[in-house]
Design a protein around this nucleic acid. Sequence first.
DNA 1: ATGCCTATTGAAAACGTTTTTATTTTGGTG
DNA 2: CACCAAAATAAAAACGTTTTCAATAGGCAT
Lengths: 331, 331
Amino acid sequence: MNVTIKDVAKAANVSVATVSRVLNRKNNVSEEAVQAVNRAVEELGYSPNFLGRDLRKSETKRILAIIASTEQTFYSEVLRGMQDAAYAEGYDVLIATTGNDPDHEMHLLGMLFSRAVDAAVLLAPKLDSKTIYDLSKRYRLAICLERLDIKDILCVTINNEQAGYDATKYLIGKGRKRIGLITTTIRSQSSVDRENGYMRALKDSNIEFDPELVFYGDYDAETGTRACKYLLELKNPADAIFSISDTLSIGAMTYAVQHGVTVGKDVLFFGFDNIPYSHMFIPKLSTVDQPCYLQGKTVAEKLISNIRNEVPDTGTYMLPHSLILRDSTGD
Amino acid sequence: MNVTIKDVAKAANVSVATVSRVLNRKNNVSEEAVQAVNRAVEELGYSPNFLGRDLRKSETKRILAIIASTEQTFYSEVLRGMQDAAYAEGYDVLIATTGNDPDHEMHLLGMLFSRAVDAAVLLAPKLDSKTIYDLSKRYRLAICLERLDIKDILCVTINNEQAGYDATKYLIGKGRKRIGLITTTIRSQSSVDRENGYMRALKDSNIEFDPELVFYGDYDAETGTRACKYLLELKNPADAIFSISDTLSIGAMTYAVQHGVTVGKDVLFFGFDNIPYSHMFIPKLSTVDQPCYLQGKTVAEKLISNIRNEVPDTGTYMLPHSLILRDSTGD
DNA sequence: ATGCCTATTGAAAACGTTTTTATTTTGGTG
DNA sequence: CACCAAAATAAAAACGTTTTCAATAGGCAT
């Protein structure tokens, strides 16, 4: 029914081995054969079945990027970095989403066990560290944008703790003492790290930590709005708000603007991720920038070299972040 | 090196055929054998190699969604719809991005030719219609969110022409006569359709089309900002602006707000897509809502049933859109 | 002419499954 | 106890490639 390498061989009057050699640009084949095979391929409209090839070669030249959802727009640059690096090495990057469901995450990792891809990158791991760690011993697996509390697994990220510290410290430097924190109930290592940075900055400045100033919620702007309402209506309200993501900050600022609060003066806002909207929203949001493209590129490069090398690189690479200062902190 | 079905067979003291039957839950196998095999699988940590399985079965149970980039956040819901439908049928959805490059799009479709996936959905086709059409005759291929100027290929979308008409007509109904249009230089059928709808609405209301009122640019907010500046600085400036995407509208409104223009009164704005930010941005943006999740779900369902059926459904399905009226049109 | 090396080729093995076909075992019936 | 059908199993073929191995042909030095 479907045209296979055998049909091509027959049409070109050569053996399947020769066809394969031509198709894979091996050098030890006569010009004559090359012509004949190419003509036959053209004529029959043949395109090789990778299922056969992959099986034989035991490789697919594909790597899988596992993300939570395509909603968080800031994955985009990371993925582009991965694509570029992978493509340059002859690999394709496939993306799959977990919806933050550990079971689904495991299901997708099944593609790794079953050799449907050569390697995988977790960009929002929800499985427990031990599980991931064990898997990383048997398969080519890396973490990006996050880190595990277990070391010894290839990991490309930023120092989220330090970033949280830096942002909070900046607000404190502006004379703020009641600094609210908006974070998520869904725990990720990066959130925890950012929170810890926030704590350390307070401690560092002899400001007592007030649990009332922490708001836990979802990942969307609406949560930011509710959080802001809550934080500003406290008996002892917040005079600055640090969120672990720009989306939350923007939601928060929405509330502030609509309730006559002067952003950047009455209350300062600091976000995280430097998403495109953070500088489109008025007032513009101060935020922490992380090198998305570079993280993606780096993790793909290292992972692919791990595929090739016998002993894999299991290091942790923390790329530099930076503070972007805009209207929302009065800059 | 790696544990295969043979090793399991040996360990369980049965034939590979029996192992396969157990693993695939065939009924004609004794309870005894089931136990033995399961024990062996457990012991050896075996997980089947899909390259072998896929080759033999000539199917992968995976479908590929090809998008431009993960940046346009509104793909997210479409993909979720596809996932849900696919997952329910035992399929996985893989996502790959083209960056609007037709060559890369073709490269990705190679996964279809080479049987690395069972079917594919194009969500932002950049290849020419004829090429796609020809491919759709040989492989399971569908279009979503867009349509081709060639019929007779499975396609799930909305009536973009009508939607463009509706939005423009609404602005006209508000007494506007100088209606600007912000659109993209990158041509997609949906953009063209929306533009045509805009034209038809003008004609319908005996407003002469003025090419000066059309601004072509990129897909980002910054373009919207520039466009707005241009449209408001015309000798005969715009009193309403319809953009083919919310991102453009938001960029445009950013300019208006910053230059003392009262949005929803001095100038009306109408967007497209109803992205989350459209109602977070202040003022809130009036926009066209399209049923993203449903389009994704529908196309996946129909495509999978096409995989199964001998003669495929090649119909075009236009799902209903609706106008969302908010601040930016003074509602 | 003979032998040897190299370039090119074809036959066949291999990859790890599923499925078909053939064989053995089981259990029930006369 | 013999027979048969049904159930369970094993052996082998099949999927479409790549790669190994062996064989052939041709060119060159002796």
